[in-house]
Lab assay of single mutants.
Amino acid sequence: MDALKSAGRALIRSPSLAKQSWGGGGRHRKLPENWTDTRETLLEGMLFSLKYLGMTLVEQPKGEELSAAAIKRIVATAKASGKKLQKVTLKVSPRGIILTDNLTNQLIENVSIYRISYCTADKMHDKVFAYIAQSQHNQSLECHAFLCTKRKMAQAVTLTVAQAFKVAFEFWQVSKEEKEKRDKASQEGGDVLGARQDCTPPLKSLVATGNLLDLEETAKAPLSTVSANTTNMDEVPRPQALSGSSVVWELDDGLDEAFSRLAQSRTNPQVLDTGLTAQDMHYAQCLSPVDWDKPDSSGTEQDDLFSF
C-alpha cells in the first residue's frame, strides 16, 4: 500500500511530472533526481522514447528462454528487412502500455495491464526491452520488442512496467475491499429498513384510530445511509488515497477476473515476472533518469539497429 499512497501523494503535489519523457535525446524537461521519484509518476504514465523492432507469436506467457528466442527472431526479421526502425513513445501506467508513433502521434497499440504476463531486458541484446501480452483480438500470446538507447534504459522500462503492474494490483485490492464494505453496509441498511417496515402498523389501523404518522421519526431512520450505499452501487469504487486528485481509476471486468485468478494461483500475485536478476534490479533502481541518457562506457552510441 505504500507504493499506492506515495504515488497518489506525488501526483497530487505535481501532476505535471508524469508528462516528462525519457530517452528522447535531450528533449525532456528537468528530471527527478532518483528512481523513487520517477516511480511516483506512474499514475498518469511515464513516457519512454524507443524504437519498435516488431512482434512475434509465442506459445507460453512467460520465460527467459522463451523471450530470448522470440527477441532473436524479431531482431533477425528487422535486420533482414533493412528498413529504419519506427520511433515510438511507450506510455507506461497502472492501466497498461500505450504505444504511439512519434511522427504521426497515431495510436499503435493499447495493452491493458492485466494482459501483460512478462517483461524483460534481454541478456543477449542488452539494449532490447520486450514484453509478452495476450492479444486483445484473440487468445494468442505476442512478444513485442523495442530497441532502447542503452542497457540502462531497457532495464528502466522493464522495472517501470513491473512497478505499474504492482500498483494496478494494489488498486484492485483496495477497490475489492471498498466494494465488500459497501455491499455489507448496503445489506445491513436493508435489514434495518426491513425491520422498521415489519414493526410499522398498517396504514388502515392508523387511520381508524385517528393517529398521525410521525414524519420526524421517519426522517431519523437510516434511510439516507441505505440510499447512499445503493444509489451508486454500479459505480466502481476508487482508492481513497486518490481522493481529490485528477486521476480516475476504473476497474473493468477483465482486470477484476484476471487479478482474482492471480490472487488464487500465485504466492506473490502482485509481482510481474521479469528477466532481471536481483543485481540488475538493484543497479537500475539506483540510477537517476539522467543516467539513462548518458552514453555507455563501451563506446559511442549508434542510432541504428545494427549497432548491437
Rank of each mutant, 00 (worst) to 15 (best):
L251S: 10
R73A: 09
S135R: 15
S205Y: 08
C143E: 14
L42D: 00
I116F: 12
E188V: 03
E178S: 15
G254I: 01
L107C: 13
S140F: 05
A80L: 13
K176D: 02
E250S: 15
A76E: 10
L85I: 03
F259P: 05
C286I: 07
M281L: 08
M153H: 07
Q279E: 03
Q270N: 11
P237Q: 08
D293N: 00
A185T: 11
D214L: 10
R39N: 01
T267P: 02
P61E: 06
V207C: 09
R9T: 15
P295Q: 01
T230G: 07
V58I: 15
F48Y: 14
V111G: 09
W249R: 13
D253E: 05
L66F: 03
D303A: 04
D214G: 11
Q163H: 05
M46G: 04
L103A: 00
L212V: 09
A121M: 06
G275A: 02
V226R: 06
P239H: 01
N34S: 13
A219V: 14
L223M: 09
T160S: 11
A263H: 02
L103Y: 02
K176I: 09
D2V: 07
Q187R: 10
M233Q: 14
K166V: 06
E64P: 06
K127F: 14
S117M: 12
S307K: 00
I116R: 05
T218V: 06
T230L: 13
L215R: 03
A76H: 12
C143D: 01
S175H: 00
K84F: 10
F169P: 01
Q173V: 10
F259M: 03
P15K: 03
D304I: 00
R151H: 06
T38Y: 12
A208K: 07
A208W: 01
Q136R: 12
K181E: 14
V271M: 04
A219K: 08
K127G: 15
E178H: 15
R95H: 03
A258V: 07
T267H: 06
A145L: 14
R266H: 01
S6A: 14
G8K: 12
N268L: 00
D253S: 13
Q197P: 07
A145E: 15
A208N: 08
A263K: 03
Q264K: 11
N34D: 14
K19T: 15
D234I: 08
P289E: 07
L215Y: 13
A195P: 10
L193V: 05
S227C: 02
A185G: 05
D198P: 00
A195T: 15
L47Q: 02
T231L: 05
S93A: 11
L42E: 10
D280M: 09
P269A: 04
K204W: 13
V111T: 12
Y114H: 06
I113P: 00
E257R: 04
E64K: 11
C148K: 02
P61G: 07
D2K: 07
G24K: 07
V174I: 00
N105R: 03
E170V: 04
W172G: 01
V92C: 10
L262A: 06
A10I: 02
I74M: 12
L47T: 01
L206W: 12
E178D: 00
N110G: 08
T56K: 08
H282C: 01
S297I: 09
E170C: 11
T274V: 01
T274Y: 03
Q139G: 14
T200Y: 06
S112Y: 11
L42G: 04
A221L: 01
L43F: 11
L262R: 08
L50G: 11
E65M: 10
E177F: 05
S67Q: 09
G275L: 01
Q106P: 02
I97H: 09
L255A: 00
T100V: 13
L305F: 11
T77S: 11
A133S: 14
Y52W: 03
P222T: 05
L193P: 04
H137L: 12
E65N: 07
E40F: 10
F165N: 01
S246N: 12
A154C: 04
V271A: 05
A10Y: 14
W22P: 10
A164Q: 01
T158P: 06
L223H: 02
A68K: 07
Q155E: 08
P222M: 12
K83H: 02
A76W: 09
N211A: 13
Y52R: 04
T36R: 10
M233R: 09
Q173M: 02
L47W: 11
Q134N: 06
V247L: 15
K72S: 14
G299K: 07
T89N: 14
A130R: 08
E64D: 15
D303C: 03
S243M: 07
K184H: 03
F129C: 01
W35Q: 08
S246R: 08
C199Y: 14
R261H: 07
M233K: 07
A70G: 15
Q264R: 00
Q134E: 11
L203W: 05
N229Y: 09
G23Q: 04
Y283F: 11
E217W: 02
S224P: 05
R196W: 01
D234W: 09
E44I: 12
E33K: 12
K220W: 02
S205I: 09
T230M: 06
D273K: 06
A70M: 10
V92R: 14
I98A: 01
I113E: 10
Q285R: 04
W292H: 02
G24L: 06
A68V: 12
